[in-house]
Simulated scan of single mutants.
Amino acid sequence: MSDLNHSPRVSAAPRLGEGPSPLKRAVAAVPGPLWGLLLVCAVFAWLSPYFLTSRNLINIFSQVSEIGIMAAGAALVIIIGGIDLSVGAVLAVSLMVNAWLYRDFGLPFGLSALAGLGVGAFVGLINGVLSTYGRIQPFVATLATMSACSGIALFITNGAPITGFPEWFTNLSRIRLFGIPLEMILLFAVYLAVAFWLHFRPTGRSLYAIGGNEEVARLSGIRTRRVKVLVYVIAGTLAALAGLILGSRLDSAHPTAGIADLLSVIAVVVIGGASLAGGSGGMLGTFIGLLIIGVLQNGMALLNVSPNLQPVVIGVAIILAVMLDRKSKI
């Protein structure tokens, strides 16, 4: 009798017609953020007749290009379980150093632009070293560099903006290739390059292992510290690249440029499905999150919603995204 009582149960074979239908499987395969994007687009298309015009849709991409490029780097940091609060300040200081060297020292603009990119990479290196070899929490380390970069951007020109970039540089924001703005093409190129690295290169794939369990990744032979420093360097360089795009569009460098974009950058990554605990996320979800933020900002502007209320909407979107992420892990 005891053998009968402890015998394994035999599960019944699935009956014909049971299980999810092909339609349900197709719906389940669509990323959650994409449904959110479609819903937001449908709402604004219904509320404003100008939303679905080709000109407005291209404007959405142009308006979020620098945020999107910063978000690509921020997504890599979040995948490894870190956080980078300095991206907006890095944009500001790299752009200010670029303009300062060009105006006050007569450095050719190409070299000053490279120097600006170098500043972004150097700040990223500092962030990576502090959070790995220095064993400082990434939140604290990047908060410190954010404060330092903001102060340096204000100090080198006493808080005054710099204008008068070369004409060829400012014309870059007006170039269209087959009707597509150059900054939009650059945005796509960055996301495709980062996505290729994440999925087809061993170093890129190791980011998920580090974010999932850093100690296990280290024991499996991954040089976790070097990879993490590299990720922060990439994030800093992309923030400096975003500064060049913003400077070309505005024909000026302002010491506070980009600092207010930190909330939007984090929102893009979180809404795109990346977990703040690390180990998950990707460029497709981040790009969808970018479009959600861009559509929200653009749609509210078309409806004459006060700019002071727009961060409230983005904050609500972040909370909803984090709640859905936690619910999916229960």
Rank of each mutant, 00 (worst) to 15 (best):
S94P: 04
A240H: 10
F51W: 06
G106R: 02
A301Q: 12
E214K: 11
L130V: 14
R218K: 13
P181C: 02
N298P: 04
A239T: 05
A42R: 10
R103A: 13
V140K: 10
L34I: 09
S7L: 13
I67A: 08
V64E: 13
P31T: 05
I330L: 14
I319L: 14
A12H: 10
T157R: 15
V140Y: 07
N5I: 15
F165Q: 12
A193M: 10
S2E: 14
R225V: 08
I288C: 09
G315K: 09
L244W: 11
A26E: 04
L107E: 02
G179P: 03
I288W: 04
M323G: 07
I152W: 06
S248I: 07
P255G: 04
A121I: 11
N59C: 00
S131D: 05
V295M: 05
L238N: 03
T203P: 00
L85Y: 00
M184E: 11
G36Q: 13
G204F: 01
P14T: 07
L125T: 08
M184T: 15
T170V: 12
L143Y: 09
N56M: 05
I58D: 11
I222G: 10
A160P: 04
L95P: 02
F122G: 08
V313H: 03
D3E: 14
F139H: 11
F61Y: 12
L34M: 15
I175R: 10
L143D: 12
P108Y: 09
R223G: 13
A121S: 04
V269P: 02
A235H: 03
V190K: 01
N304E: 12
K327H: 13
L219K: 07
V313W: 06
R223Q: 14
A144E: 12
L38H: 08
G179A: 09
I152F: 13
V40A: 14
I292T: 00
A148H: 10
N127Q: 12
G247K: 04
R103L: 13
I245R: 03
V123D: 07
I222M: 08
P108G: 08
K24N: 04
L290F: 01
A195L: 04
A28W: 12
L130A: 15
A13S: 09
L320H: 05
M146T: 10
G204R: 00
W46R: 03
I245T: 05
D261T: 06
T53Q: 14
K228V: 08
L47T: 01
V43S: 05
V322A: 05
R9F: 11
A195C: 05
S7V: 07
F165S: 05
S62W: 10
W197F: 14
R326N: 13
A239N: 03
P202S: 04
V27I: 15
